[in-house]
Design a protein around this nucleic acid. Structure first.
Lengths: 132, 132
DNA sequence: CTGTATCCGACGTGATACTG
DNA sequence: CAGTATCACGTCGGATACAG
């Protein structure tokens, strides 16, 4: 979920750029992980409770939802507010940063959705050629 | 990406939408993997040979470069052309599809770059609070 | 030069059981 | 309800050796 050391081009890269590269990669890897984007999209409509999210994402385990939300919270993309009631209630809500991230992610998602046929076609062709 | 194609709500989800969701996720996961985006960015300036890429991405193993390029080729994002010379020469080049993907990926990358300070700040705060 | 084959450790993910 | 703890398994990525 959080790959460090990403890449190091030879001489033409100063330490500052190197840091940036790793940082950007860490954000990209968050987008690529299995549940984060899904959670962000669900939170765009407003705050949600833990089990509410769990039910909406049919198929996620309690453990992975917790880990995903912790990761998003750590990056400042989501806030976690606990209501000290019984039974306990915890709301998760997108921060401004999280809503900002949602914009380019949506663009990427829409591109993916629009070109899914092409990509899946290419995969089928490739697999067919490879199977010969 | 439209919400209805992202989340997997419980009853209100037909098989077709579910397929779309998985497809989009597979594209997102490609963006999140360790080397693919980097390779795509390097290929934006034109075709490159295998070892040329390997040298540019100091730190990638031969194995991972091969696997990454195969994956990109399979998805129709990159073409692989072999020159039957001695020694052999193989050129990799972005397809139109690949160049198209580069656009939203760049947007995401620029957002990440611009907000890196905020994200890293949030991480530090979170880790500091957690360390208490 | 451009790969493939193999081994291995690290990590991500899920299932299950337990707690405040 | 909202987690934490533990285990088990599969995949990912790197190192190395070898091949066409």
């Amino acid at each position: 979920m959080r790959p460090e050391h990403i890449h190091v081009t030879d001489p033409p890269l100063n330490p500052a750029e190197h840091q940036d590269c790793r940082g950007v990669a860490s954000v990209l890897s968050r987008v690529g992980d299995k549940w984060s984007v899904l959670v962000i999209m669900l939170l765009r409509d407003g705050p949600r409770r833990f089990n509410e999210l769990k039910r909406m994402i049919n198929g996620i385990s309690q453990r992975m939802l917790t880990l995903t939300l912790r990761g998003l919270e750590r990056d400042g993309l989501v806030t976690r507010t606990v209501f000290p009631t019984i039974p306990p209630r915890v709301d998760y809500e997108l921060t401004d940063l999280g809503r900002g991230l949602a914009v380019p992610v949506m663009a990427l998602g829409e591109w993916a959705f629009a070109h899914l046929p092409q990509i899946e076609g290419a995969r089928n062709d490739f697999d067919a050629r490879n199977a010969e």
